[in-house]
């Protein structure tokens, strides 16, 4: 199961043509001055209309990739195509159709939220100054900042700054929204709001490219995902496909934990873990095997309160792929 073959497999199916890919990179590589390889031969394909989760621990090359996609840094080798234009050469033509939040919000602290948006809007030569006031007002309302629009940005909380950053990405209708860790540093309520907004934008037909180190975030909002580790792409595909790769886990609920663990281990169930009132393990769980296991437990006098297989999660898939936990650096 090499990374390249899985990448290709994920692209298969009803074969969307290259024109339908919003982002397409081939052999994208970035080596920084110090010789450090930040991104290594990335082949990424983001289909139009997807909510694409870009997963990986901190330091795995996600942000460097996003900076190359946005034309901020030039690739050392390979090609990055966004909305049909090669980056960074086509930045002027491509980027007005892209909204982006990169490595957290950055604002002019001495300007109000409203003036910050007007400033970033003025930077886009395709944005119409005549409609600026209205569009800024709408973007503020959309992220729920209308009441705080006149406050100086330095008085904003991190969540408000994050929302103002999102508002600036939504100043004009976009074909692609690139969000780098959009829920970083937010409280659970703030996270829910951002996710709801992402779904809303996606429902309008905007492709969303969302980087995150939070697996449940990707599982909640994304249709597709790619996993990065140490600058390389491990796998990409639909979230359902990825989660299906994870092995299921047998869970037995019982007060006789020790006895149950012994029985399971005797029946070649691997990674048996005994917890409080439950025992878990992994194996190939065909129907026949499950029936036998259950019978064996009962036969050994284990009081079985619950018995079943839990579906694999994206986290299981990720741990299996990278051999490491996810929240490496939180």
């Amino acid at each position: 199961m090499t990374e390249r073959s899985t990448g290709r497999a994920a692209e298969g199916g009803p074969a969307p043509s290259a024109a339908d890919d919003v982002i397409r990179t081939r052999g994208l590589t970035k080596r920084f001055g110090g010789g450090q390889l930040a991104v290594d031969g990335l082949d990424l394909t983001v289909p139009r209309g997807s909510v694409f989760g870009f997963l990986g621990p901190n330091g795995s090359g996600k942000t460097t990739t996003i900076r190359m996609l946005m034309g901020l840094i030039a690739p050392t080798a390979g090609v990055a195509t966004v909305l049909g234009g090669q980056m960074p050469q086509s930045a002027g033509r491509v980027l007005p159709r892209v909204g982006a939040l990169i490595e957290g919000p950055a604002l002019y602290g001495f300007l109000s939220g409203r003036d910050n948006l007007a400033r970033f809007d003025a930077a886009d030569p395709t944005a119409d100054p005549a409609t600026r006031r209205r569009r800024v007002g709408e973007a503020l309302e959309r992220v729920g900042l209308t009441a705080a629009a006149g406050k100086k940005a330095k008085a904003y909380s991190l969540g408000m700054k994050q929302r103002l950053g999102l508002a600036s990405a939504l100043l004009v209708p976009r074909e692609l929204l690139v969000l780098d860790e959009p829920t970083n540093g937010l409280d659970p309520q703030g996270m829910r709001e951002i996710r709801a907004l992402v779904r809303e934008v996606a429902a309008e037909g905007t492709t969303v490219f969302l980087s995150s180190h939070l697996l449940d975030e990707i599982e909640q909002v994304c249709s597709h995902a790619a996993v990065m580790s140490r600058g390389r792409l491990l796998v990409q595909g639909t979230v359902a496909e990825l989660a299906a790769r994870a092995q299921g886990r047998l869970v037995v609920r019982t007060p006789d934990v020790e006895q149950a663990a012994k029985v399971l281990a005797a029946h070649r169930v691997a990674e048996v873990r005994a917890g409080d009132g439950r025992v878990e393990g992994t194996a190939e769980f065909g129907e026949q095997v499950l029936a036998e296991l259950c019978a064996a437990l009962v036969g050994a006098g284990v009081r079985v309160h619950g018995f079943g297989v839990e579906r694999g999660t994206l986290e299981d898939a990720f741990v299996a792929l990278t051999g490491e936990g996810f929240d490496v650096a939180g």
């Binding site: 209309g49 909510v51 395709t126 004009v172 074909e175 779904r199 309008e204 037909g205 249709s223």
Partner: peptide, 27 residues
């Protein structure tokens, strides 16, 4: 409208063509 957690590719593609094509095109 809020619900589609997993946007089906087919639906999304047509949505993109219709909505984004009109509203988010090249200015």
């Amino acid at each position: 409208e809020m619900a589609p957690e997993r946007v089906a590719p087919e639906r999304a593609v047509s949505g993109a063509v219709v909505r984004a094509g009109v509203r988010a095109g090249v200015r």
